[in-house]
Design a protein around this nucleic acid. Structure first.
Lengths: 228, 228
DNA sequence: AACAAAAGGTGTATAAACTACACTAAAAAA
DNA sequence: TTTTTTAGTGTAGTTTATACACCTTTTGTT
């Protein structure tokens, strides 16, 4: 047992993990094995260990519960309404994550837990306040996609412009003009054409491009001035 | 004593409170009375009580430590590096705040604690990881000022356009063109001219304007499309 | 009373960015 | 050879952003 002079809340991390699967934006959920909310779907997450950082805890829980390994992760916000967990006071530090399902398909979790990808516009009822955490995460994704190069976290190293445009259209729920989209995305100077083309498609093959991460990291001041 | 089956971190809130004072951007600090970092300056904050929300805790601590009452407050981020507090594991949920020092001058703290406003570009050494929390808060302020009507949180109900422009120039560390600034700020449709003018100035009196909070709250979708 | 000092207030021309829009090119399948 | 399907390209018109200089109002000074 651990003793404190004052009551301490428990602290957890939870992750909203987005991925692009089958031309749909999906989120990764796990089914709860224990009360409360037993059998309900929930965001992957768990208790922060006493000697690990927040991001470290999020990465560990994701690996343990869903086998997800290689991903983009940033902190989203903390949620601490006093009654959000019926067991005890629990404050959760929510994280926002993106996995590239092309290069790193998510295998079944190592333990017995059931994990599954759900389309973001058709979620089952979620445990705790996870629906509102999810809503905040989706807002963040839609906003940040407009002025930061998040899109490339969803895509393989080599991607085509129609693929990239579809991604924007799917996440932002909008139609974009093909010519204007290309003009803007190429004007950033961060996307380079490769001498490779699609194969095995039953129509004209699209050219592959890559995102220049180094250049983005360097000239971060210039910003990713891409607004759709 | 309080007992738990697993170790629990302590959870605190800390606040980066900005204010405009004497044509300078300042931040509110308190001097620590206890170890660790005794006598160092620190962000106001303290432990979250077991039955209060995070924002509620932030407001309470601010009132207790600095007497600040009426302010704009939003969550900034959480900081949980395992060794950030030498006593025990402490995770802090940092908040971002703005006080209007025109209408609500900050009186001395109720308890014996010393509180003071420091110019943001001339801070004393801070306790814990508070410098890096402050840095993040300043980034947030500078960014958000460009596309959200945060400026009005610093100013009195009635303000002049030169006053507003100076605020932008001070916070963004830049010079702005007077005519273009007025054009843009008025184009938002959220700032209304009053039939009142400055008095007791030894030069042409500036007109007063007010920010239309209701209209902003309504048409939030339209956004505060103000980019400097 | 006139003038100087100090800050407030106004418009226009140019450049840059954004939007709307329609056809040709390439590859495979019929 | 033709059809189907998707990739790829340019321009004109509109909107938005930028650069820039003078007059107005009030007070204080001579």
């Amino acid at each position: 047992m651990y003793e404190y002079r004052y009551p301490h809340p428990a602290v957890t991390v939870d992750c909203v993990v987005f991925g692009l699967d089958d031309d749909e934006l999906k989120v990764l959920l796990i089914r709860r094995l224990l009360e409360p909310y037993k059998d309900r779907w929930a965001l992957p997450g768990g208790f922060v260990r006493i000697d690990e950082g927040l991001e470290q805890a999020a990465l560990r829980e994701l690996r343990e519960e869903t086998g997800v390994d290689n991903l983009y992760l940033e902190q989203l916000a903390s949620y601490g309404a006093p009654q959000r967990d019926p067991r005890e006071r629990v404050i959760t530090v929510a994280h926002f994550a993106i996995v590239n399902l092309f290069d790193h398909p998510v295998k079944a979790a190592s333990d017995a837990r059931e994990a599954a990808w759900f389309p973001v516009d058709d979620l089952p009822p979620l445990a705790f306040d996870h629906q509102s955490i999810f809503d905040d995460a989706l807002d963040r994704l839609q906003n940040k996609l407009r002025y930061q190069p998040l899109a490339f976290e969803f895509l393989p190293e080599k991607f085509t412009l129609p693929q990239l445009q579809r991604l924007y259209e799917i996440i932002l729920c909008t139609d974009l003009d093909k010519r204007n989209f290309r003009k803007k995305i190429l004007a950033t100077g961060l996307i380079h054409a490769l001498e490779e083309y699609e194969m095995d498609v039953s129509h004209r093959a699209a050219r592959y491009y890559r995102f220049d991460r180094e250049r983005w990291a360097d000239g971060r001041d210039d910003g990713f001035e891409f607004r759709v």
